[in-house]
Design a binder for these strands. Structure first.
Lengths: 209, 209
DNA sequence: ATTTTTTTGTTAGCTTTATCACAAAATCAA
DNA sequence: TTGATTTTGTGATAAAGCTAACAAAAAAAT
C-alpha cells in the first residue's frame, strides 16, 4: 500500500481507540456516520479513510469493528513492539512516561536519559534512568527507534543528532528548538506556538482589526 | 485584515520568537532566506506570510526585525493580557504551568482547578488552586478566556461545557477525549495519536507493505 | 412486485496550503 | 554607464486534504 496521508494516519489511530472501546462493550458493527459522529467529523471522511486502507464494509450493516481494528493495527503498528527512550525526565518527561505506559502497549518505554546525578540509576514507572553518556550504547543494545525530547532546548539539536546516529528513526520534540533532521521522522510539539494560536483564534471579535 | 491561515499564525509565533532572540543580540535586519533557514522552511513561505500580514521589507536590505516583531505582536496578541486557567494539576498540568509562566508574558495563568483536597488552597508557580465548584465564579471574576484541560478524560466534555458557559473562548485539550464544542476555539493535543503517527512514519522500510 | 429508504464506495470538485517562476527595483561590478 | 546580481513581492500553479454528489446495492415498506 502507498504511504497514507498524515491526517489519515492520525484519524486511524483515533478510530482504533474508539473502536476498541466499542468492542469491549460488545458492539459488533458500526456505520460510517456513527464513527464520524464520535470523532466529530463527517461520514464521508470516515468512508474515504477506510477506502484508503482497502477495507470494505457491508451495505446496510456497516463495518465489522473487529476486522477494522485488526486492519488498522496491521497498518499503523510495526509487527512486534517498538522501543522508546525519553531524554530529560523533568515534570513533562514524567507526565509523558506515565501516560504512554498506561495508554497503549505497542510502543514501550525502555530507557530514560538525564544529566541529573540524583535521577541516574533510579526508575520512573519501572524504567531506568541512565547517564547521557550511555545514550549510544543503550539505544543500540535496546534497539530503540523512537525518542522523546523533553530536555532543555539548547541541547535538543545535538541530542537529536546523536540519537539518529545511534539508530533512532522517529523523534518527538517537545522543546521549542526548531530541529534540522536527516534520516528520521520528526514530530514537533511547540506548546507556546500552540497557545498563541489558541489566543489568536479565540480573540474577542472586538479586537480583530 | 482577514483572518489568517492557521499555519501562518503558527509560523508568525515562531518567527517572533526567533526574531526576539536576534534583536537581543543587536541584529537589525533579516533576509527572508535567513529567517527561512532558521525555521527550516522556504524563503517564499516566509515572504508570503509577511505579505499576508501586510508588512513590506526593503529591497536588498531585508526586513527590519524590530518592525516585524511589533507588527506580529499587534496581530497575534490581544491588546493587554489574556488570563488562563488550568483544570487538573497533575504532572502534566504542573509541567505546563511552569513552562507557560516562564516562556511568554501575554497569557497569564491566574487560576488552577482540581478535585484533590490536598491541592486545593495551595499554589503552583504562584497560582492558587481552587475547588472545581468555584470554576464558574472564578472564571467570571478573573475574566479567564483560555483554559487548559489536563484532567481525567471522562470529565473533559462536561468541564469544557461549563468553561464555555462561563465565558472561556479558547480551550486546549490535552486529554484523549474528542470534544464537541460550540462557541470556542479548540486545540487538541493527543499524545497517543501523535506517538502512533511517529511510529508509522518512522517504521523501518522493511515492514512497509 | 414495486417503490422507498438506507448505507457503502467513489468520482469530481472545492478549499487550503505550499511552491514555482518571474517582474521590479536596488545595489554592485566592470 | 551598462550589465550582472541580489532580494522583495506576487500571480499562477501544484499538492494536500476535505466535501458534495451520486451510483449501486441491499433491505424495508407498501
Amino acid at each position: 500500500m502507498r504511504q497514507l496521508p498524515e491526517r489519515t494516519v492520525e484519524r486511524l489511530s483515533q478510530y482504533r481507540r474508539v473502536l476498541l472501546r466499542l468492542l469491549s462493550i460488545k458492539k459488533e458493527y458500526i456505520y460510517s456516520h456513527e464513527l464520524a459522529s464520535l470523532l466529530h467529523i463527517t461520514a464521508v471522511q470516515v468512508r474515504r479513510d477506510i477506502m484508503l486502507i482497502g477495507h470494505t464494509g457491508t451495505l446496510r450493516l456497516g463495518y465489522k469493528i473487529k476486522d477494522l481494528v485488526d486492519l488498522i493495527s496491521t497498518i499503523i503498528d510495526t509487527p512486534g513492539k517498538r522501543n522508546l527512550a525519553i531524554v530529560g525526565i523533568g515534570n513533562l518527561g514524567q507526565a509523558l512516561i506515565n501516560y504512554i505506559a498506561s495508554n497503549q502497549d505497542k510502543i514501550i518505554p525502555v530507557a530514560i536519559f538525564d544529566v541529573n546525578e540524583k535521577k541516574i540509576g533510579s526508575t520512573f514507572h519501572g524504567v531506568t534512568c541512565y547517564s547521557m553518556d550511555m545514550m549510544e550504547e543503550i539505544v543500540k543494545k535496546e534497539s530503540i527507534t523512537i525518542a522523546l525530547l523533553t530536555l532543555p532546548p539548547q541541547f535538543a539539536q545535538s541530542t537529536a543528532n546523536r540519537l539518529i546516529e545511534a539508530g533512532v528513526k522517529g523523534i518527538m520534540n517537545f522543546t521549542p528548538t526548531l530541529l534540522n533532521l536527516q534520516g528520521a521522522f520528526l514530530e514537533q510539539y511547540d506548546m507556546i506556538t500552540s497557545l498563541e494560536k489558541v489566543a489568536y483564534f479565540s480573540k474577542p471579535k472586538f479586537f480583530v482589526s
